[in-house]
Design a protein around this nucleic acid. Structure first.
Lengths: 170, 170
DNA sequence: GATCCTATTGCAACGCGTTGCAGTTACGCA
DNA sequence: TGCGTAACTGCAACGCGTTGCAATAGGATC
């Protein structure tokens, strides 16, 4: 048995969205090529481990859990260790390459190349998830801003509840 | 050194709210007394371990993390094991005694005796947290309901961002 | 009070993620 | 090309939370 590349950990399936289509992974200007330079320009280093993670990320779309990324890196290089992956993800987050959030179950989810700020919707019934556009969350943002001076970070938002199919409608 | 009852794990300080005062732990009708009966009525059992957790909970207000509850139970009975605490919390959640959510860092937080549905606001700068009333979240709820038929579970909502003091205002 | 059924417990192991530390290595510079 | 520094890696251990399993013990019934 090889390192089976388990992709969906049974609790965070994120299939196609029924009403809100997901962004088709535009790969805008392929920032992957410039990354080594950007990294070095910051005094950071371009290592084989980082290259592998970047390759994995460049093939990913939507949300990926940390564990999934570790698994995929391990498929590319069995000697991969989790701590390196997570630390590299931290670095990449500072560079704006990924953005992390916490799913409804508290697990970390990474979003690759955040095209636009968006939150997540998670159904407690069927465990599907969808994206919330900034438009939709705008009202909440405005209320918090106006009444509390609180600047919401949409990308970190996960709203749980029940979708139409699972009894969302009365 | 005894089992030091560490209360604030340094990453989820939740002091008094600056604009939204927290509910003053009304202890409405003290449901603690009826609990043994309610539990037995369901075919469940009233055990010493559950009694201890209930005592701990009855002395808690606001949000408590799972680890904190384990710690406090251990203070009352050093032989307490985490799995029992967490399993009992599951049972109590079904009975409506507690409600769990995931904080901004993904850790579990339990809310004792949820007086009214409310979400949480978490400042990424100072790590304070406040409650979001259902009024405030209503707009978001309406949008999701109308456009997606999605029934938001407010109690599970944590909004991250920056408060006024930490740069929330432009 | 004795008996029986099964809910519950404690244990041990696991999974995800983080952290401290010592050894390694990328890479700027002479 | 060789050198030096500090960024990075891998390891080991930890913390939080979950799960499977065998043993225990509520509590209903007689």
């Amino acid at each position: 048995m090889t390192a089976s590349r388990q992709v969906a950990p049974a609790r965070s399936a994120a299939p196609s969205a029924p009403s809100g289509p997901s962004a088709p992974s535009a790969t805008a200007t392929a920032p992957w090529d410039e990354l080594p330079a950007r990294i070095r320009a910051r005094g950071l280093r371009w290592t084989p481990q980082r290259r592998i993670l970047l390759e994995v990320l460049s093939r990913s779309e939507g949300h990926v859990t940390g564990a999934e990324l570790v698994e995929r890196c391990r498929a590319a290089d069995p000697s991969t260790v989790p701590s390196t992956v997570y630390r590299t993800l931290d670095v990449l987050e500072e560079l704006g390459i990924v953005q992390h959030a916490h799913g409804a179950d508290g697990r970390e989810e990474f979003h690759v190349l955040p095209v636009s700020q968006h939150g997540h919707l998670h159904c407690l019934g069927c465990h599907q998830s969808w994206e919330i556009s900034s438009d939709e969350a705008a009202a909440l943002g405005r209320v918090l801003e106006r009444e509390r001076g609180f600047a919401m970070d949409l990308s970190h938002l996960t709203v749980s509840g029940h979708c139409r199919a699972c009894g969302g409608d009365g």
